[in-house]
Write a protein that binds this DNA or RNA. Structure first.
Length: 563
RNA sequence: GUCGCAGUAGCCCAGUUGGAUAGAGCAACGGUCUUCUAAACCGUGGGUCGAGCGUUCGAAUCGCUCCUGCGACACCA
């Protein structure tokens, strides 16, 4: 039920058709305090048209308004404040949630159309940092939002598994490496070699020469080079998958950069054939002045391909394989300009899905205001942060709920949930200066806070020893309960908006507000009292539990029944 | 230098399409567990919404100028 529409129609009717309902609909707002009603219409916009002062208009309209759908309509200055029929709304909303359960808020906006998501994309032989966390959990949440909105997401982990750095890595491994070490802790040791390489090549320029040769061999299919590369890739992927498993994230494909090696020449040929490629300072570029952008560099002056060449091949592959309506890239905001160029080139090439290419940027992660860099050893390891968080969750459980079953599993769900939620609760674009203590908070506006509210709700439902209700009769309406009802009613709209804006933080904010409203209700209302209202209170609790769990699911966060 | 993003309480952030008295959390202080999990709840203090001008009946929100921070600006990804 669209209550805004109800108000808009009522107001439009009261103007005797002088104003259309759709004009009014857009201006209806939700008052900041519930004392001013559930929905309000400011009459300012009618002042010119009706040649009267807003206050006068409000007074006049309120006399003519049909109030059958509302409990009351009152005038406060220039505002028309509408109070909804609380029982009617409660019955409708709770009924809907309890019947639809975790499908409450689903819609068919996407019409089963496919959306590809370029996300996570760690580099082989390098550890996953907090930067990868961002791309991974934001992409994962967007995929879930897309599904809920009727799309078919394809999560593509565009691994950084090709490039000159593998020449360096092979060189370093052959010089200083040890097979057993790499087997024991692949990422750790491979990174050591890499860092050492960059340390020593400052003194010894022949190292770079050697690295270039090894990469050339790799490109030419030299068996030793290829075998090492494959091995690095495999052990790295195994290590990544352990982390992904912890995060509860999976992918539909892992088509890394190397996957497109064979397609690069075709990209260049096509660009040339279309007359898009031109020489500039020895390099081959696509002129983008018609898009008000700098030229896109496709081939270096030595003829080598660049990142964009690969990305064009990738976009074409996705276009032909999946026919996506949208092609999303969850990549840091520092690449915004680059993606404008990529999109412009693809448009010039006439790629169908180019119009649906969207860069979904997120803010840079820094530590003490400095950029992270594997090379300089300035890095926050994702695995370490997760481990710390889980450890803290274990300690909390030991202190607060020592008899809990599945302690280990719950600790992991809470610890990991805190990290994921902590990343998703703020707007994507906000830069984050990483602070471990800040990250490891379980109180206030955090993931565990929402999980805790859900666990409390589940605990009450369990102790009720009753079949779960599917509707209500006459819920005793307190301010706390009414706030919850309105919030539940809002969930489907929030799901739509979050998807439309590619903004998981809207779901996180919603979950926090609902959890807060529930905790308040829980503190003030005794739920398990055996009276004729018990069923209705349980219905409310059940609805809250369902929606909290669903909101957390959309963020990729678990909701344990006990914690 | 050019372009982009940002600036709201001591800290970290909300603030729908411009609307009524700018809100949470953390930190500080003070209350609430023999009763559904205190990872909670209730209360107190704390603001020239970076600065200025403009548009508007009305601006944290829109426009312009300036200040500050971060990022991107062809042979990295």
């Amino acid at each position: 039920m669209d209550y805004k529409q109800l108000v808009a129609t009522a107001v439009a009717d009261a103007t005797d058709g002088q104003v259309t309902a759709s004009d009014i609909y857009e201006k209806i707002e939700v008052p900041k305090t519930s004392q001013n009603g559930d929905l309000a219409f400011p009459t300012f916009i009618l002042a010119k048209q009706l040649h009267a002062a807003p206050q006068q208009i409000a007074k006049k309209l309120v006399e003519k308004i049909d109030t059958t759908n509302f409990s009351k309509v009152v005038v406060v200055g220039p505002y028309l404040n509408f109070f909804l029929d609380q029982q009617q709304v409660a019955q409708q909303v709770l009924g809907e949630v309890l019947v639809e359960k975790n499908h409450y808020g689903d819609n068919e906006d996407g019409h089963d159309q496919t959306v590809t998501i370029d996300m996570s994309s760690p580099n082989i032989a390098k550890p996953m940092s907090m930067g990868h966390l961002r791309s991974t959990v934001i992409g994962n949440s967007i995929a879930k939002l897309l599904s809920k909105n009727g799309y078919r997401p394809i999560k593509d982990n565009h691994l950084g598994d090709w490039g000159t750095q593998f020449g360096k890595l092979i060189t370093a491994y052959l010089k200083w490496g040890n097979e057993d070490d790499v087997k024991r802790d692949p990422i750790h040791y491979l990174v050591q070699y890499y860092i050492r390489f960059h340390h020593e090549d400052e003194q010894d320029p022949t190292l770079d020469e050697e690295a270039r040769e090894w990469f050339k061999k790799l490109e030419d299919g030299d068996p030793e080079a290829v075998q090492l590369w494959k091995w690095f890739r495999e052990v790295s992927l195994q290590a990544f998958n352990q982390t992904y498993q912890k995060l509860g994230v999976s992918f539909d494909t892992y088509n890394g950069e190397s996957f497109y090696n064979d397609a690069l020449q075709g990209v260049v040929d096509t660009l040339r054939k279309d007359g898009l490629l031109e020489k500039s300072q020895g390099a081959s570029v696509v002129d983008l002045s018609s898009d008000n952008l700098n030229p896109a560099l496709i081939l270096k002056s030595d003829g080598a391909s660049l990142y964009i060449t690969r990305d064009i091949a990738t976009a074409i592959y996705r276009d032909q394989t999946y026919h996506p309506v949208m092609n999303l890239y969850v990549v840091g905001s520092e690449q915004t300009y680059y993606f404008k160029q990529l999109k412009a080139v693809l448009k010039k090439m006439g790629l169908k899905s180019a119009a649906g290419l969207h860069h979904i940027p997120f803010g840079l992660i820094t530590v003490n205001g400095k950029k992270l860099s594997t090379r300089h050893g300035n890095i926050v390891l994702l695995n370490e942060v997760l481990a710390e968080s889980i450890k803290l969750a274990q300690a909390q459980i030991a202190a607060k709920n020592p008899d809990l079953k599945n302690k280990e599993q719950v600790a992991e769900e809470v610890g990991v949930g805190a990290v994921i939620f902590g990343d998703l609760k703020n707007e994507r674009i906000d830069p984050i200066d990483f602070n471990l203590q800040e990250q490891l908070k379980f109180e206030g506006e955090t993931g565990p806070y929402v999980q805790y509210a859900h666990a409390r709700a589940e605990s009450v439902l369990k102790k009720a020893h009753q079949p779960l209700p599917t509707k209500i009769t006459q819920l005793t309406m307190t301010d706390d309960a009414w706030t919850i009802i309105k919030m539940l009613q809002n969930f489907p709209a929030t799901v739509r908006r979050a998807n439309h804006e590619f903004e998981p933080s809207m779901i996180a904010k919603y979950a926090l507000r609902l959890a807060k409203a529930f905790n308040k209700y829980y503190a003030h209302t005794k739920i398990l009292t055996d009276d004729d209202q018990l069923n209705d209170r349980l219905a409310l609790v059940q609805a809250v539990s369902l929606v909290l769990k669903e909101a957390l699911r959309l963020l990729g966060v678990q909701a344990p029944d006990e914690m």
